[in-house]
């Protein structure tokens, strides 16, 4: 479990803080199980712009006890390593196969996190994810709440999860 410092907690409401750890746990579980990569979570922060820190992003809407979105944005080198591991063959460039894989990874992270959240009485439904590829693309969350970013590192590179729920 990631410990959150007080200045971070002050910036986001209690609801959002409770949502963070299930997404961190789900991300680590999905990538370690499906892609056999060791994943280290960094310290969450509040993101103030819409610019993606990665080159390819999966984004998915959630509805239920709160409405919001999660986005998973990968550096090119990171996602190529992850998908190469998933397929057992080298992937060389960002293409439709990579986009499809990012969509499915986003879907699985959402599913795992929703399973953990259900155990504490928070039930969510998920939409089908969409994927954006390209340097310096923007990520549009569907709600106006704080955008909580959680950076992750792997041997193959970095990626970031963004979680944004309505205020």
């Amino acid at each position: 479990m990631i410990r959150l410092d007080r200045s971070f907690v002050r910036k986001v409401n209690a609801m959002n803080v409770k949502l963070i750890n299930p997404f961190i746990n789900a991300t680590i579980n999905v990538l370690e199980t499906m892609a056999f990569v060791k994943v280290d979570a960094g310290r969450p922060y509040v993101k103030t712009d819409n610019l993606a820190v990665g080159d390819v992003t999966g984004i998915l809407g959630l509805t239920g006890v709160a409405n919001g979105t999660i986005a998973v944005t990968f550096e090119e080198k990171c996602i190529l390593t992850i998908v190469s591991n998933m397929f057992g063959e080298a992937m060389e460039s960002l293409n439709d196969e990579i986009a499809d894989a990012v969509g499915e990874l986003t879907n699985m992270i959402s599913g795992q996190a929703r399973r953990e959240l259900e155990q504490v009485g928070k039930v969510f439904k998920a939409a089908i994810p969409s994927v954006v590829i390209g340097r310096n693309h923007s990520i549009r969350h569907y709600s106006d709440g704080p955008k909580i970013a959680i950076p992750f590192s792997t041997e193959g590179g970095k990626f970031t999860i963004e979680v944004c729920f309505e205020r």
Binding site: M34, V83, M86, F87, G88, E97, D100, A101, G103, E104, N107
Partner: peptide, 10 residues
């Protein structure tokens, strides 16, 4: 997802 079909096929 073609990704999942490919993983399951493998």
């Amino acid at each position: 997802f073609a990704t999942m079909r490919r993983i399951l096929k493998n």
